[in-house]
Design a protein around this nucleic acid. Structure first.
Lengths: 152, 152
DNA sequence: TATTGTTATACTCTATAACTATA
DNA sequence: TATAGTTATAGAGTATAACAATA
């Protein structure tokens, strides 16, 4: 490898990208995503599926559309997700009481146990990442800042 | 709509998701992404293409592989990106001096002008988002925090 | 008419493997 | 043998449109 080529290895000027929240958000999120996958891939759970489980766990009886709206997804994306989670015996569809068009989503018994294990893993990962910041105060501050940037 | 169903609209408990940096990062990044698209879609530039242009603008003569490594992408993804940017007369491939396998990437004259316009738009968008935070100090702090979370 | 779940579809982004021409 | 660019391909994620059953 020539010296000229070697320059390209680590001396790249990121210019405007360095000052862009959007770019840094993307890099940070991509890192979180890949780390999450490492931690949870053997359990067959992606970040998206984790979010669905977390919502159903805390809000038993929600419809598929309601979960989709909460997560900012389209209803059509819920079908495959709930199919998979039902196949894994984590979530179950039950006929809704007042509306025969919709299903109510509930955790199964084994699903609750699974989510407990899963949450512990995710929290460990989260803890390791949060420790890169100086204090718990800074983590809270970051959570608030990200919330501001997520709105509309 | 029944009262029972109405509950699902905005009274969803996000549980553990609320305290997860990973989830909030995802929501914030998705918002940035869609806003960026609104601002730049008429120019035919996605966040990914913008990053490529920004790197080439500041580092003329880099190879495709070097740009890919800087951005954390695979080389194969660069082909279509550079094809499009070359078609738009923003970037051009030139034969590399010492290595006939590789191209050196450079901005075209019109590309530099285009990037100037583009950067102004992106900076406006960025400014609007940054103003959601309390001060410039907080923005700098956030940039540093995101940088910490993006590493390995 | 409007809404729920569903299906089909497509589009983007991304990663992998294999090929070629060079090194 | 190793690397740069390329191609083909496949997977995940996401969004749109249309349909049947139901409201």
């Amino acid at each position: 490898m020539s010296d000229e080529a070697k320059q390209t290895d680590s001396c790249v000027d990121f210019g405007i990208l360095n000052s862009l929240l959007g770019y840094r958000l993307r890099r940070a999120q991509m890192n979180f995503f890949s780390k999450f996958s490492e931690v949870c891939s053997d359990l067959g759970i992606s970040p998206g599926l984790f979010a669905v489980i977390a919502i159903v766990d805390r809000n038993p009886g929600l419809t598929q559309t309601a979960v989709a709206q909460a997560l900012g997804n389209d209803r059509s994306a819920m079908v495959a997700a709930v199919d998979k989670l039902e196949q894994m015996d984590i979530i179950e569809r039950r006929a809704a009481k007042n509306d025969r068009r919709s299903y109510a989503l509930f955790m199964t018994k084994s699903g609750e146990q699974f989510f407990s294990t899963l949450s512990n893993r995710v929290m460990e990962h989260e803890k390791a990442m949060a420790q890169r910041l100086k204090s718990d105060k800074e983590v809270d501050w970051l959570l608030d800042a990200l919330d501001l940037l997520a709105k509309d």
